[in-house]
């Protein structure tokens, strides 16, 4: 099976800290890949390396079969990203932000207009499309970031906590949209702390802990290695070493 994302020994250091430690990702094309890990495990650093925001300290990677070091712009034309932190111009409106993205992707005027209208409707941002991003709430910014990622009709989506701060109605619509995107052959690489969402949407899972990839495979493969009927949450907690029984109980808390 060809891979949308493939890394070998991908490592990223910040001084003494090894944020990502020689991970070998294999994300099949047309899959919904859930990338899980506790806070500070290295999920966002991995996404930043894969999307070109950070250079790996060592290791190699191929995105959609291409080498990011050589084909940076070719890859970016086929990829949509919601990064961990906001990546929006504060002083542009939603329409202007999307127009900028359309222009740099070379979309024609009619396509741009149609896609912007549909995306703004989907994200329920139509009423605020003329407001500057500076005046947006956290959830509205997240929705706009998702619209930005979807606008150029990418083949691969990197979504870092896309549902954070998004209301239930929009969240459901987005989940359906992403499922449809994968059904049509697109690939989603998603990180989320909401394991239920990942369990429902993802068909492949990777779990990172202290910068190392501790598990990877289809959901069925992960389950086969655990006790029968284990939920993804149980598998995750088992792998990252969570110890609920010995955790402080805060009995002073009324």
């Amino acid at each position: 099976m060809s891979h949308a994302i493939e890394t070998h020994g991908l490592t990223r250091r910040f001084g003494e800290l090894v944020a990502v430690d020689a991970i070998d990702l294999a994300v099949p094309r047309g899959s919904f890949y859930g990338f899980l890990g506790p806070n500070g495990a290295g999920k966002s650093t991995t996404i930043k390396c894969l999307t070109g925001l950070l250079r790996p300290s060592s290791g190699s990677m191929r995105i959609l079969g291409l080498d990011p070091a050589r084909d940076d712009l070719v890859i970016k034309r086929q990829v949509g990203v919601i990064p961990e932190e906001q990546a929006l111009f504060e002083r542009l409106s939603a329409v202007e932000t999307l127009t900028f993205v359309a222009r740099v992707h070379g979309l024609d005027r009619a396509t741009t207009r149609r896609r912007i209208e549909e995306l703004l409707d989907l994200m329920d941002l139509g009423g605020a499309s003329g407001k500057l991003v500076a005046d947006y709430s956290h959830g509205m910014r997240k929705k706009l970031a998702l619209a930005v990622a979807l606008l150029p009709a990418p083949r691969l989506l990197f979504l870092d906590e896309p549902f954070e701060g998004i209301d239930a109605v929009a969240s459901r619509q987005i989940k359906e949209l992403l499922a449809g995107f994968v059904a049509r052959g697109g690939t989603v690489f998603l990180t989320s702390h909401i394991i239920e969402i990942v369990e429902r949407l993802a068909d492949h899972i990777g779990i990172i802990h202290h910068g190392k990839l501790v598990a990877q495979g289809s959901l069925a493969e992960l389950r086969s290695g655990s006790k029968a009927g284990a939920s993804l949450e149980e598998i995750f907690i088992h792998l990252v070493g969570g110890d609920a029984e010995n955790a402080p109980k805060l009995e002073w808390l009324a």
């Binding site: 202007e96 222009r103 009619a110 741009t112 207009r113 912007i116 003329g130 005046d135």
Partner: peptide, 13 residues
Amino acid sequence: GTRRTERVEGAGS
């Protein structure tokens, strides 16, 4: 404040 410029603009080339 709000800025009401909701016109959807096309992409220039």
